[in-house]
Design a protein around this nucleic acid. Structure first.
Lengths: 319, 319
DNA sequence: CTGTTAGCGCGTTCAC
DNA sequence: GTGAACGCGCTAACAG
């Protein structure tokens, strides 16, 4: 494989000139530029990006941290990030953490070592302080409300969106409302819990811990949820479900057990992925793909910015 | 940030010695080794991996090409690859091609430019010849039967697995059997089609083109499939479905329309993802995650190897 | 065991 | 407009 020196020799110019045409700089005569272009053509020269990286201290690589890639929410988010990365000629380095802190730190360390230019953490396990400490090495973008920090982010206000769903359910006459959530400890989950409590308080409704069902992430969690519901002595008449997949799983199970939706149980989910339309789920739409795209844009910038994305209630047939 | 020279100076040794302890080589006296270690400690030295890469001509990065990341099959495959990558201290660069040839070529070109050490193509669009041409730049691993080429791969014999399903269905008394498939042009799909034709021929059954339903990849494709079936004048009594997700979608739609499974329509799917158990799908289990792990191992080796993975019929309640 | 030195391939002053 | 020369940080002969 030929290098910049070879090209210079063949074209009868200096390496500097070659570098200039490579980087599309002005101040190169058409004559020499063409000579270089021709040399590149005949040698099928390709520049060594490692060398470029070393020289420039940049990699054109962006890290993406997700807990699981085998999950529709993160799959779509990655898709959004990926679409923009392609446009901007950046590549993605995927980190699958399984919510293990060391894995997330590994990604952060790669930023520090200049192996990636920026890092997008789609779901975080390290503390905000830890993340913030890495900001000096490059952009770190989060997917949660970071408006009280120096960290950039794209997020939806889960307090708001949860409230929208709750109020809607309330207007439909429900007074015993529960919810299903994936990981219960993240910022987003805490926001939702707060919205829930505030809502109950506002309408003077009782809080029952058992009406919050945790570890609900996949379609197949539906059965456990329905069983929990059935055994519950304080069975809710409506359920907020933080993912369409899980809601679809619940629906399927209810169907099998003869629980009629929405008469016996109203369901409102979140995301509005294709499955939601298919299952006729009433859902709160989240612009996941767009969030991914926005995240990438932020990763490329070097300024702090926090972008809230808005949600939209889609009425279908499960409430 | 300090570099290897600084460490050498502080430790009072040469850069080579530093390099040696960095790379855990023998032939360094404990005395000097400790001095170096101490210097690293106090300066919090981190080596610049770009420089290592340039010098060694390696990146510790492995490219992974998928059409979509927002798809359970590829999600799980990526998960498998990722698990092993972490163990071996390799990182993944994700390429989402959307089945566009240029995107796949971009990944191949990155291999050529030494930006990645190897490339795993989970689903291919370029011709085998094109792929083979890149073999000189590094390992390229495929996810299909490549036993008549020089390309390494991990795959399941789809001819075999399709035949298993067909024979099983046949034994259950079905004579009008159709199938649903995603992309119809891949090697894997062609193998399945061949198995299908050979099966029909063996039992002297007629071939109806309309019994092959294409572009079936997602849960929500279920409705279109069921509608196609209903309108079909030669409606099959059994259906092979190349993904659990799609089968689950069909099931859901049938349920709604009062089509009883398996009496009105028998369904056998492939993969045995969690949703299959949940929906009580009879399915042909594919070791997707294990395939991912094996793929990564092959990507690290420099020898040609083709590994067939075996499948297993899981009897549940849809046949 | 240890150090000197020459690359790896490219970007970038800074004179001309 | 152009090019010589140095720097990026590290590895790998080679000599001792």
């Amino acid at each position: 494989m030929s290098n910049i020196k070879d090209i210079a020799k063949i074209a009868g110019v200096s390496v500097t000139t070659v570098s200039r045409v490579l980087n599309n700089e002005r101040y190169v005569s058409d004559e020499k530029r063409n000579a270089v272009l021709r040399a590149i053509e005949i040698t099928k020269y390709q520049r060594n990006l490692n060398a470029v990286n070393l020289s420039k201290g940049k990699t054109h690589l962006i890290g993406v941290v997700v807990p699981y890639s085998n999950h529709p929410y993160f799959g779509l988010l990655i898709e959004g990030i990926s679409i923009e990365a392609i446009k901007k000629n950046y590549k993605l380095v995927l980190f699958q953490t399984d919510y293990q802190k060391e894995r997330e730190l590994e990604a952060l360390e790669m930023l520090k070592h200049k192996q990636i230019d920026s890092l997008i953490i789609c779901s975080r396990i390290c503390s905000l302080e830890v993340v913030e400490a890495y900001l000096e090495y490059g952009p770190v973008i989060l997917c949660e409300d970071t408006r009280n920090t120096r960290i950039s982010s794209t997020f939806v206000d889960h307090y708001k969106s949860f409230t929208i769903a709750l109020e809607y359910i309330y207007k439909k006459g429900h007074r015993k409302i529960g919810y299903c959530i994936g990981r219960s400890s993240g910022t987003n989950s805490l926001q939702r819990n707060l919205a829930y409590k505030d809502f109950l308080h506002k309408y003077n409704l009782p809080y029952h811990d058992e009406q919050i069902i945790k570890k609900c992430s996949y379609f197949e969690d539906g059965e456990r949820i329905v069983n929990t519901l059935i055994e519950s002595k304080n069975r809710p008449t409506a359920l907020l479900v933080t993912s369409d997949q899980v809601a679809a799983g619940i629906l399927t199970c209810c169907n099998e057990k003869g629980i009629v939706i929405p008469e016996d149980l109203a369901i409102i989910s979140f995301d509005n992925q294709p499955i939601a339309k298919y299952m006729k789920l009433t859902t709160v739409e989240m612009p996941i793909k767009e969030m991914g795209q926005k995240l990438l844009h932020q990763a490329l910038l070097n300024e702090q910015s926090q972008t809230e994305m808005s949600v939209k209630l889609i009425e279908r047939q499960t409430v």
